[in-house]
C-alpha cells in the first residue's frame, strides 16, 4: 500500500547519501598526502568536519521527532534521511580516520559511533519487519482484546473445574492465578514460557483424561488450549514491542556517548595541535 522509509520518495535520501559517500571516496582516492592518510591533512580535516556535522545532525533527530507541527518536511523524510545519512557517516568517518585504529580517545569515538550505526541497521530491520509480524500475530485483535478474552476464558475454566475433582480444581486455579506475562525484561524478550502455569494445567488435564466427567473435561481442555494459544500470541506481542523499545534504549545512550566522545576528540585534537 504505502512504501517503507527505505524507498520513500523514490530513494531520494539514498541518492543524497550515495552522493556524499561518492564525493568523499573520490576525494580520498584522488588525494595523495605526504604521510599515510589521516585526520590531520586538509582533506582529513574537511572529512572530519563533515562527519562531525553529520553526527550532530543525526542526533538532532531525537529532538526533531518531538517537535510537533513545525517544518515543511514530514517526520518520514527525516527518518529516511537519518537512516541513509547514518550509513554515509560510516564511510565518511572511516575515510576521515584513514583506516587507522589505535588505543586512544579518537578510536574510542570511532568504535562508539560504529556501535550506534550498527544498532541503527538492526533498528531499520526491526522497523521494516516488526509491523508485519505484529499484525500477523494479532490477527485483527488488540492486546487489550486478547487479555479480555483470557479473562473470559478463565472464568469459564474455573466454572467448569468446579464440577471436577480437587486436584484438577487446584491445577486450574493455580493456572488462573499464577499465569504471568512479561514482568522482567528477560522474560519479555524471551517471548515464550514453556513452563507456564496454564501449560502445566493443560498437561495435567490431558493426563487425567479418562478419570470420569469426560464431557466437562474435554470442554475444560479446549478452553485451556485456547487460552494457551492466546497467551502464546500475547507473549509474542510483548516480545516484539519490547524489542522495539529496548532497541531504542541501546541506540540512544550510545549515541549520547558518541557525542561526548566527539567533544573529547575535538578538544584533544585542537589542544595538541
Amino acid at each position: 500500500m504505502r512504501e517503507s522509509i527505505l524507498i520513500y520518495r523514490n530513494h531520494l535520501y539514498l541518492k543524497l547519501a550515495a552522493l556524499v559517500s561518492l564525493v568523499a571516496t573520490t576525494a580520498y582516492v584522488w588525494h595523495t598526502p605526504f604521510e599515510r592518510p589521516n585526520g590531520g591533512t586538509w582533506l582529513g580535516y574537511t572529512l572530519g568536519v563533515v562527519a562531525g556535522g553529520l553526527m550532530i545532525w543525526l542526533a538532532w533527530f531525537g529532538v526533531r521527532k518531538r517537535k510537533y507541527g513545525i517544518g515543511k518536511l514530514r517526520l518520514e523524510d527525516w527518518l529516511s534521511a537519518h537512516v541513509y545519512m547514518g550509513l554515509a557517516l560510516a564511510i565518511v568517518a572511516t575515510l576521515h580516520a584513514g583506516f587507522q585504529l589505535n588505543w586512544n580517545v579518537h578510536s574510542a569515538l570511532y568504535v562508539l559511533m560504529m556501535i550506534v550505526i550498527i544498532s541503527g541497521i538492526v533498528g531499520v530491520y526491526f522497523y521494516i519487519r516488526f509491523p508485519i509480524m505484529l499484525t500477523e500475530n494479532r490477527r485483527g485483535m488488540t492486546a487489550e482484546v486478547m487479555l479480555t478474552q483470557i479473562t473470559d476464558l478463565d472464568r469459564e475454566i474455573r466454572q467448569l473445574a468446579m464440577g471436577l475433582d480437587d486436584a484438577t480444581n487446584a491445577a486450574v486455579l493455580k493456572a488462573s492465578q499464577e499465569t504471568i506475562v512479561g514482568t522482567t525484561l528477560f522474560s519479555q524478550l524471551r517471548g515464550f514460557d514453556e513452563d507456564c502455569e496454564t501449560t502445566q494445567a493443560r498437561r495435567f488435564v490431558e493426563d487425567s483424561e479418562g478419570s470420569g466427567e469426560s464431557t466437562s473435561r474435554r470442554q475444560l481442555l479446549t478452553r485451556l488450549v485456547r487460552k494457551e494459544e492466546l497467551l502464546k500470541r500475547i507473549r509474542r506481542d510483548v516480545q516484539l514491542r519490547c524489542l522495539l523499545k529496548t532497541w531504542l534504549i541501546c541506540h540512544v545512550p550510545f549515541s549520547v556517548a558518541a557525542l561526548m566522545a566527539l567533544a573529547v576528540h575535538v578538544v584533544t585534537v585542537f589542544y595538541y595541535w
Partner: peptide
C-alpha cells in the same frame, strides 16, 4: 490541525508513513 500550516500533526509526525 486547521490552525497550523502543513496539515495534520499526526500524519506529519509518523516516522514510517503508516
Amino acid at each position: 490541525c486547521k490552525d497550523i500550516d502543513g496539515g495534520a500533526s499526526c500524519v506529519r509526525a509518523c516516522p514510517t508513513g503508516a
